[in-house]
Design a protein around this nucleic acid. Structure first.
Lengths: 332, 332
DNA sequence: TTCGTGAGTGTTACCGTTCTCAACGTGCTC
DNA sequence: GAGCACGTTGAGAACGGTAACACTCACGAA
């Protein structure tokens, strides 16, 4: 920078003004400085800038170290939005969603002077850990329960209740007497919300509400629960908490000789890239993860200015139903 | 830091020495400083440190902004290894793998003073762009072609040729006369290597080498190519370039009424988390992406010290075959 | 004319570390 | 007892920017 100033015949402060697009610089001077910068191939040093301004132009993301489809997709949405806004993103993943590891992740990000944190926070434990973030560090949670808690964090998430309603309604409208549900982990708010939307819809329709079975978010869990449901001839419609579970359920039904959708209809949740190629192509609830990422970033950026008490804003993104071949009217 | 020094009754320099575990500090002094640090809840400022040392303790990852399974899984492997080594990772994703966007990504990371870059580089264009990284910035490529090119980058990747051999050999050993192949994008080295391993194995066995069909890495492409293959009654064994393609092929075969594995055997590549729950469970080639990430990081760390001319080291990780229900001996 | 105003620029301090070098014991050797 | 190596410590200058403030003009109003 000193060299640029010397070459342009101005002070380093004027160079700084040019870089930061300060208004009170004569056009001719600016040109001279810009020319000098070009000819010296000058690049501002972010570390020095961070030291002086206490702004790193870097955002932290706390993610979950498992190959779950949703969280992963969101990372890309957030990163591309951050790039557009002039931020770089750093990731800190946690092995499990307990208090301790999350605290360490926050700590790591804080040490590196991130300006704000987006937590991909499917469980409340992550949020409570986040409250211990050093003061002035803006946080936004994406996914999880949202405003139901008393957490002081703005949240962005898909409306899981609405999504579950969509799925359940779809099956009831086809003429099924009731809908069974294979849930995700019972302590995840996302699971709970999907159960709630499903149960509420059945209740409103005066349908019997079967017991929920639960497990992990993967096909193995779906397969296990699916075998139980397949053995029950009364089951004609199953709503699965995500597409991977649905994949396991489909296999269980197939092995039991129950045809989908002729004998049993199946609906998933997520709309993973290839669920349209399951056997049969899966009817599912679509979530726009990229949009979720963008919204989370926008929210964070808005809160960056004012530290501390962020109003508990809560953004809901509406899911939509993608009807494919795994659902149809029940035989009579 | 000044406050810590004052409280401990030493100079700031001594505090710095304690932090950096400099040997020549009297034990008693060190204790006093540590106590002061604790009581003031002192945390070293990374930005200042970076400014002074030109080391940010941050690594950059250049990723591909698409939900491809492999690249995604690797991110987590790299991050957790980096964490263990005391590094934070920043990600810069690119929309497509062309020269320009990759250059911009490198630039963004360089501006933020990353110490090194790991490029998830399935195409050579990424590597050539990387050669324009500012001097002294260590780079490691993961995935892609590897040392076949004259690139000066150390590379870590799965041995795709060996994997393809494994798959093809498996099918031939079962008694199939030959094996058909549904490839990935023809301009990706990973596709090319899989084709090569497959072709070479067929050739060595004296089997007919059918034409390769190619498309994208997803189920839609597999479905499209699968329909063509399903129409040909001579086809009894298909090796797919990845599991998603295999999913599409399975569906195409199913729709055409050709049973798997009784009439046609299918093998995939990747061993995605749920491919054991396809219909039928997919025989596939397993890649350990987490291990790949760890190795990439280890390689990068090793090259961090000496800038510039890194010997073109090339690490190969061996894949393995996971035999499941989608393959069997052909009917006679 | 005098003075205030605001655009344009330079001076100096400061952000929180690490690095370089000098200084001060202390114990050992010759 | 002087000289010397070495462990231990401190003072001051970087590192590369930004912030605060002072200064110089040109211009228009009083």
């Amino acid at each position: 920078m000193r060299d640029v100033a010397k070459l342009a015949g101005v002070s380093h402060q004027t160079v700084s003004r040019v870089i930061n697009e300060h208004p009170h610089v004569r056009a001719e001077t600016r040109e001279r400085v810009l020319a000098a910068m070009r000819s010296l191939n000058y690049r501002r040093n972010l570390a020095a800038r961070t030291l002086a301004t206490r702004e790193s132009h870097t955002l932290g993301i706390i993610g979950f170290e498992t190959t779950l489809f949703g969280p992963e997709s969101m990372l890309y949405g957030i990163e591309s939005a951050a790039r557009a806004a002039g931020y770089l993103v750093s990731v800190a993943t946690v092995r499990d969603l307990e208090h301790r590891p999350v605290l360490e992740a926050v700590d790591r990000l804080a040490q590196h002077d991130v300006d704000g944190i987006i937590a991909i926070a499917p469980k409340p434990s992550v949020l409570t850990a986040l409250t211990h973030a050093p003061g002035g560090l803006a946080c936004v949670a994406v996914g999880g329960a949202g405003g139901a808690l008393e957490e002081p964090f703005p949240t962005v998430r898909v409306d899981n209740i609405a999504g579950a309603r969509l799925a359940t309604r779809h099956l009831l409208d086809l003429g099924h007497a009731t809908v069974h549900h294979v849930g995700g982990p019972p302590d995840w708010p996302e699971s709970q919300a999907r159960v709630e939307g499903w149960r509420e819809t059945l209740y409103a329709a005066g349908a019997v509400v079967p017991a929920v079975t639960a497990g992990w978010w993967d096909a193995a869990a779906g397969y296990e629960q699916g075998r139980r449901l397949a053995a029950d001839p009364a089951v004609t419609a199953i709503f699965c908490a995500n597409d991977r579970i649905a994949l396991g359920v489909l296999r269980a039904l197939h092995e039991a000789g129950r045809r989908v959708p002729e004998e049993v209809s199946v609906v998933g949740f997520d709309d993973m890239p290839d669920s349209g190629f399951f056997l049969p192509p899966l009817t599912t609830v679509h979530q726009d993860f990229a949009e979720l990422g963008r919204r989370a970033l926008a929210l964070l950026l808005r809160h960056l200015g004012r530290p501390g008490a962020a109003p508990p804003e809560d953004v809901l993104v509406a899911p939509s139903l993608v009807a494919r071949a795994s659902t149809t009217a029940p035989r009579r």
